[in-house]
Design a protein around this nucleic acid. Structure first.
Lengths: 250, 250
DNA sequence: AAGTGGTCTAGACCACCTT
DNA sequence: AGGTGGTCTAGACCACTTC
């Protein structure tokens, strides 16, 4: 009698997710705008609050919205930062490196939320790389437009850094690498290892992360021409805040 | 009368999450082992199934467990693959690049699940980079140990690739780049741009991803010495399957 | 006070896997 | 058949924000 069923096959949650995602991606819900509240979704789709919540949780997990307790859920809008490892640390130009993916990653001021400098014993794996246990630790959180975007912890052998501006929060022009150069240990070789994962609770706290937001974890080792490792820098980057770029030749 | 309350402050869900996470990280729950089922958690912690589910969902989101419908939840254990862009594409050696983070990323055979080669019109942004709309598209999924780990789509200008082995699934020794060299368009300059985000539904399907697993999205552009872009390769890497590495000098 | 999200319960039904 | 996860409801109470 009835027409063959259309086989929706998608759960109520996914139907809500799909509609909202489409609205966000099409721009009919603009960055900063409020997403329909749980109650609104309850009415509109005739589902329970639990289901409406589950739908919003999925969008959170995709980083499309962020949520403020007691206020509402809002469409994310954050222009990613271009982090170009090779041209920041070297001065090369790459003709092929222009206009890839993003034209408008304008440079924006990056501030330091917090910085702690101390002497300590390095974790085992770091000590092995540096061939030194006693290190100066530079621990800081960077922010852009009021939002924490990176947590970085650097380890420099204490026998190099002790008593130098590296032990001061502000290391002066050119930063730690320039100071290492001043004392005859200029780093010239760099290796960056990158992992992608969900943040642990400590990282979530430092970076004020919403649940479901992935991070990139970068370990950079910096070595001199004589292959002495003079710095290990462990960085945690908020995933949707960055586009990372590396350039190289064959 | 009673002792001052201990102010648990953590939700039931977080308490369950914390205990299971500790067990996984301490190794008392080993990779491949089954995590207590929802019913078991319901009994052990005296919570509803919904709450037990929510706890497991968090661990899924952190990539610590994966779930098989009708069977159970299991501790993840997958040795990540080392993807060294610079030494794979060049032949350089980096003394400082050894023994960073992971000693035992033994090379494992990477197979091709599926490969489709076709001619098509490139997406606008790719066409702009290649300065050509007509392209050969190489679309494939790679697997390691039966698990999809990467989805890669390459675009090569059709006026270069047409009629060459690049249009065949197996491009022969040295791959696409060797064939481009054969016809006088050897790529020598590379730029890789990397984003970190949650996968969209299409990516989740291709890579058979569990919910809550982040991916790295890499766009590599390969250019000749004359700065002609001869390939754009869009890759989606399963986050926890990889450690990506780049090396460079200042 | 009213609206928002955050947590949780008790119970239901379904789909999938193993025995 | 029985266990597992997947989806969903109806309702409760709490914490936070705005008015």
């Amino acid at each position: 009698m009835t027409a063959p069923s259309e086989e929706p096959k998608v759960s109520l949650r996914e139907r809500i997710v799909g509609q909202l995602r489409a609205q966000i991606e099409s721009g009919s819900l603009k960055p900063g705008e409020q997403v329909p509240s749980e109650n609104a979704l309850t009415d509109e789709f005739g589902v329970s609050q639990t289901t409406a919540r589950a739908a919003l949780a999925v969008l959170r997990g995709e980083g499309l919205i962020h949520v403020v307790r007691g206020k509402g859920a809002y469409v994310r809008g954050f222009k990613p930062i271009l982090r170009d490892a090779t041209t920041r640390l070297s001065a090369q130009q790459w003709a092929a490196g222009h206009a890839i993916w993003l034209a408008d990653l304008g440079l924006r001021p990056m501030g330091v939320d917090r910085i702690d400098v101390s002497r300590a014993n390095a974790p085992d794996d770091v000590a092995e790389l540096l061939r030194a246990a006693a290190v100066v630790v530079r621990d800081r959180v960077y922010s852009v437009e009021g939002r924490p975007v990176q947590w970085a912890v650097s380890y420099i052998p204490a026998d190099l850094a002790a008593g130098t501006p590296i032990e001061r929060p502000d290391t002066g022009p050119g930063g730690t690498y320039a100071r290492l150069r001043d004392i005859g240990h200029e780093p010239v070789k760099f290796v960056e290892q990158v992992r992608v994962r969900m943040p642990n609770p400590v990282e979530r706290k430092h970076l004020k992360l919403d649940v479901g937001q992935p991070v990139a974890v970068i370990r950079r080792t910096a070595a001199t021409a004589a292959d002495r490792v003079v710095e290990v820098n462990d960085m945690v980057l908020v995933g949707d805040a960055y586009v990372m770029q590396w350039s190289f030749t064959s």
